[in-house]
Structures are given as C-alpha cells and as structure tokens.
Design a binder for these strands. Sequence first.
RNA 1: GGCCCCUUCGUCUAGUGGUUAGGACGCAGCCCUUUCAAGGCUAAAACACGGGUUCGAGUCCCGUAGGGGUCACCA
Length: 505
Amino acid sequence: MNKARTRFAPSPTGDLHIGGIRTAIFSWLLARSTAGEFYVRLEDTDQERYVAGAARRIMQSFDWLGIDLDGGPDHAELATMKADEDYAGALVDGEAKGVPGPFVQSHRLPIYKQWSEWLVEHGFAYRANETPEELQRMREAAQAQKQTFVFREEMRIRTDIQPDEPHVIRMRVLPRDGRVEFDDLVKGHVGFENANVDDQVLLKMDGFPTYHLAVVVDDHLQGVTHVLRGDDWLPSAPKHVLLYRYFGWPQPAWAHVPNVLGTDGKKLSKRHGAQSVFEFRDQGYIPEALINFLALLGWAPGGGDEQNVFTRAELFAKFSMAGVGSSPAVFDYNKLDWLNGVHLRRLEVHDLANRLIPFLEKEGIAIDSDARREMLVKIAPHISERIKKLTEAAPLVDFFFADIATPPADMLIGPKMEKHLSLHALRTSIALIEKVTPFDDATLEKSLRDLCNDLQLKPNQLFSIIRNAVTGKSVTPPLFATLAILGRETVLERLARAEKQLQAG
RNA sequence: GGCCCCUUCGUCUAGUGGUUAGGACGCAGCCCUUUCAAGGCUAAAACACGGGUUCGAGUCCCGUAGGGGUCACCA
C-alpha cells in the first residue's frame, strides 16, 4: 500500500461530534496503516458561524484521544484566531512531517484569491453578483417546476461586472450536458448529470472561499492523497472532481463514509445522549475504548477475522479502506460499555488508579495523600472487573476512604439466621480477626472459612454479616482483600460498632 | 419534489454463486462463586419484497418498498 496522506478538516463551530471523530479515526488509521501522514486543517471560512474557543477544544479532543498528528495549527496559528484562547496542549508542530501550512484557512486567503482568478482567466469561472433575494426567486421558480435549481451564467442579472466592484466568483460547469463519474472507495462507481451540478460560488463577496474551492485547493497543495469525509458530501463531490480537472491536478482517492445514526435510525443528535468527545470523557469512557468502538462502527477486518477488541497498534496493522462498509451504522451504547470495561481491565493498576482519581474526587473522595494513593492502587485490581465506566467506581470504594454510618441492626443479621446466632457469629469473628496473622487476603480467607465450619454456617451467612458490618453495603469488592486493605484497626473498630448496634437492636 | 446513497439476527458485522449463513454486543439459561462482577458453556435471534440470469443466488441484473442524505455567498 502506498503512503496515504489524509487530513481531518473540521470547522471551528463547536465541539467535535462523535460522527466527525469517527471519520477522523478512519483517516488517521489509513495514514498510520500505510506509514503516511495525518494532519488537521481548520476550515474557518464562515465568519458567521465561528465559535470562540472551538479551535482549541478541537485540538484538545485529539490530544485526549491520543490521535497523533503530523501537521496542524500550532500555538502561534491558534493564537491569531479571532477571540480564541491560547491552546494549552503541545501536540502539534505546524509542519511536522512536511505538510505545508498554514493550517487555518482564514490565513490562506491570498491563495484562494489567486486560484479563483486563475479559473476566471482560463474560462472555468465567471463573476456574478445576484442578491440573495434574486437568487431566492430563481430557486422558487425552479421548485415550482419540480426541477433541480442550478445557476448558469446566462441567468445573471448583471453581466458587466468589473473586477474591482463587489462580486462573487462562480465555477462554470462544463460541458453542459455531460456526466461526472468517479470511483469512490466506499460507494463504488458513482455518477451525476452535469445538468444537475450547480455553478457553485467559489469565492464569496467577503473575499473568503467557499468550502468547495478551499478543500480542493488545500488538499492539492497539501498533498492529500485520500479525501475521507461524511457521505453527506457526496452530492457536491462532482463539483470537486470538476475543479481538479480544471486545474489539471491529479484526482485524489475519494471515500465518502456513511454517517453514524442514533438508536432510532436518525442522525445522531442531542437526545441520543453524549455527543462530543468531552461528554464521553466525563461519562467515564476511556480513549482506548472509544477508538476501538468507533473504528468498529462501519469497519471490520474481514477475511474471516473475527476480532472485536483492538489495541491501537492492532488497528494500525489491520485497518484498510476495503473493510469500510457503505451503509450507515447505529451507535450502540451497550457495546461501547462492554468495550470500555474490557479496556479498563487491560490497564496497568497505577494507570487505572490515576484515571480514577478525578472521578472519585468529583464524588467527594479526595485522593490527596501518598497513603490514599497507595490504597487506591491496591483497590484498583479488585474493582476493574466490576465497573464498565470510571464513573461507577465511587460507590465501590467510598468506604475505604471515609468512615461509614453504623449499619442498622437488620442489616447485620445473616440470611436465614436469627439475631442471637448472628450476634454470636459477629463476636467470634471479632475474636478471630483480633489475632489473625498475617493480616492478609489469603490468611483471612483461610481463618474465616474455618470459622464457618466451626459455627456450621454457610460462607454466605458469615461473610455477608462481616461485609455489611465493615462496608455498610451488600455489594462490594471481594471481602478478604477488602479487609486486608482496610487494615485490622479499622475493621475491628467497625465490627465493634456493629456488635453494639445489633445487641441494642 | 429533483438528484444521490443505503438495505444479512434488536445492534455492529463476516460472507465475494454451492456455508448447518459465522463472530461480537445485548437478552435468556447453566456452570463457577462470600456479594456484585468478570470468566466459561448453551440457547433464541437475520439475508426487506417481487421478478429475472443460473443446475444452483445473501452473493449478479431489473423493479418495488422502506430508510437516509443533499439541493446556500454553511461546512
């Protein structure tokens, strides 16, 4: 496979959506799987829709996901963006791997001006200046006749436009009656009648290019080999194919990837739940899982390979455009949750503990000392198979870090047991736990199991009493490890309080 | 409405003319088990419909239906 140079080109109008991220992931994987380059370009050609801070947050999304770039806006470039804050990350070195910048389209205005004039000079474009109202009337007229509206130069109301007066530049679709056909890596061979292709505005009255001119010019100048984008772009692809022809530039490979749908089969939106990368992050998903899941949404290794869980290195090795499907995919939270659990369990304990900290602190469990950090590290392996998301950890560990309310008496009576029997079991356990040595997982297990025999109790009967007394909950990490981590002193203190409670109740 | 795209279990998918249509998530059951999980095993579950082509069609062709996208001096 030849090296692919791909790009992701969001417009800074808000946070990156999950659908956009998936397109970015495909582009990134294509580049990495071919030892090519992947870079980011900011398409800020619409002055009206620009959102301050969006550019920075987009770059941070890549940062958090661990999607590495070979080019993109650097500090200096980002800092010049209208009303933007400084970008705090340090992941992009503007032209890291020889992709020429600038990477922000508003910094490239002279380039678009130059190439649009080139098109006019060579007969591939012309000047026009109809007002929005005039255009609207034309559209309505076409609509009334159930026709596709296409602007053509003879429809111009003013034809004597001078280069120095306000005007737009429109592409001239040629020939009038042909067809534009091209091969798409995911959609196959597609074709459009020229008669249905609009004489698209390329350069706006304000001197900014439209998307159509800007992508073509930038992708060519920046050496993009594969144009990956959402398939909502497919209807305008013929315009781009034509532009490449007019310029005499080699066509890139086209790949229009299907959209991501919500559970109801509609395009993913707010009511389907999380949308932006940051929302997923805050809900306790980890990048490893998100990337794995998104890659699988619309792509499969094929060839009888039935792997579902992938590390990023495995994705680099196995990704190929041939495996990208042509139909839209429904976003399935069940599978994401499962994958998140799988990847959580693969994390090294210190790594897991570190990722847990902010989520615990949000629940009021401060991990603010070395002792507490060490305790978390000991706990981590015992909860990793009990949580699917980082947000689920707090209720499983809170009793390690804060004292508990003494459980009510009825919680301290074992299943199918009487009060006096439970009280006896509790007292014997206390006596035993006072002298168990060493106070570790294995020894505690052995001693307490022996005690079950002595008392002729089922493990569940004795253990549930101790669990409830020490943790205040009926669902916890494994009991013996829990006791060992908590330490003899704390365990005995809680057991003593429980004994008192049960006796009184 | 015009143009374009899409259609295998509920969901993500494998499949490239001959398969008991495979896997994963979820769901159900069983096993394991100190709780909850994790893990193991088993089960239920799909080729949208109608015509062709062919000895033979999920796979090729044509329709139909359904879904989606797009028709801006927005991307």
